[in-house]
């Protein structure tokens, strides 16, 4: 292992701006005939629907306004906690009337980490929009799961007393609520991934 390799600077982020749909979800804004399909419409195209859960929620700004000009992306394992490059990615926007997003997906399983320890089931969620100079990242854990031994939650607890913004609430059978607060008393915990 060489320690003397030059480390180049990563290309910096810039805001995705208000028109990100053109590049990332053109069909969703009726730009048809350029790309066959928008990417990430279904995170698990080949899995059975009866096993799916719904995660719903809104993204609120500092004025408590629910936003719709944002893009959410999620990355997750399958029900057995296995990551595979072909599936597990989703990309979606809140509904322009209800301002709610709905992610219809598999509930991830316990995930084997690279250090051999288990991570509790979770989904990595990113938010890009105008006004955000960098994409924000957080994690969705699930109420009712064993979260005591999760390595990341333990790290978060070292600096924050309340980790509840990272835990989706079970509001019905197979339905979870995960609201995201960009600012304010309830500001969501964001991660430097």
């Amino acid at each position: 292992m060489s320690d003397i390799k030059t480390v180049l600077d990563e290309t910096p982020f810039q805001t995705a701006g208000p028109f990100l749909h053109i590049g990332c979800l053109p069909n969703a804004i009726n730009i048809e005939g350029v790309f066959d399909n928008d990417l990430g419409v279904k995170p698990f195209a080949n899995k059975h629907y009866d096993k799916f859960i719904t995660i719903t929620g809104s993204v609120f700004d500092g004025d408590g306004k629910a936003l719709d000009d944002i893009m959410l992306e999620t990355w997750q394992s399958d029900e057995n906690g296995v990551y595979s490059p072909e599936s597990g990615f989703a990309r979606f926007v809140p509904n322009s009337l209800t301002k709610k997003f709905n992610l219809y997906t598999l509930k991830p399983g316990f995930i084997n980490n690279i250090d051999g320890k288990a991570q509790s089931p979770h989904i990595l969620l990113s938010i890009s929009s105008r006004g955000l100079n960098m994409t924000l990242n957080t994690r969705i854990y699930f109420e009712g799961d064993d979260l005591i031994n999760d390595p990341l939650l333990s790290i978060v607890k070292n600096s924050r007393n309340d980790v509840s913004s990272l835990i989706a609430k079970k509001i019905d059978e197979d339905i979870y609520l995960f609201d995201i607060f960009l600012q304010g008393d309830k500001e969501t915990i964001f991660l430097d991934i």
Partner: peptide, 19 residues
């Protein structure tokens, strides 16, 4: 536009996981 959208708290750093 960043005024009402940029979070105020510091992001939490951690070493990479399988995720």
């Amino acid at each position: 536009s960043s005024r009402l959208r940029a979070p105020k708290n510091k992001k939490i750093s951690f070493s990479s996981t399988s995720t």
